[in-house]
Amino acid sequence: MTALARIITGWSFAEAESEIGEPGGFVFKANWHEPGAPALLGKDYPQTGREQGAAALADIARHPATATHIATKLARHFIADAPPKPIVETLAKTFRDTEGDLSAVAEALIASDLAWSEPLAKIRTPDEYLMAVARATGVLPNDPGQYLNMLNAMGMPLWQPPGPNGYPDSLDAWASPEAMKLRLDVAWQMAQRLKDIGHPLSVLDTAAGLAASRETREAASRAESRPQALAILFMSPEFQRR
């Protein structure tokens, strides 16, 4: 870790008023780079300057463990907390065979039957949930603050994950009792705000299409009000699960 940190000293980004590059973009600051050729994972890096980091990262990308790591993370995110081994192996092999072509890995994921098996084992993260509501209803927030507050309430404050390893990516984390209760409150908040979006069941058709279950259709039909029907749709398994 410290060897890699030394190797990529000088890698930075251009500040807002910067003249050395597009603001926010990558720049290499040569005078910030620590001289020397540290060894990383048993290999020396004699290159100097920016090339030293590029060489190290290229080797890390080719390391077999990296392929497995990326494959596991992708499969865990899209399929299940404990994804089937065969698909992880398929994705890792694609990663290695294509020298880390992520679009090829994504296509392999989509092409696999294992990625489409039911029942769906994941739940939308809070930000996916809010975006799904916006997409299903076609209504974008006038006030982003309301959405940010809801993200905070659901434990996913925008760009502020609890640790450097990011937000959780497991069903347990996002479908905890507290989280589900807050999701329900959020569903109710948003359902009350939406106006003029037609029949709630047409929202269900938009959002779930043929996947809409008879149970959800009935529960929404029997709701005591339009907002309540919408809130039920937002909380329905076909809307929450993925």
Partner: peptide
């Protein structure tokens, strides 16, 4: 986990309907 309410809570009736579903 538990947090003091930061959002106006959904009503019991809605909660029950979602639970039934």
């Amino acid at each position: 986990g538990w947090a003091p309410q930061v959002l106006p809570p959904a009503g019991e009736d809605l909660a029950q309907r979602v639970l039934d579903l």
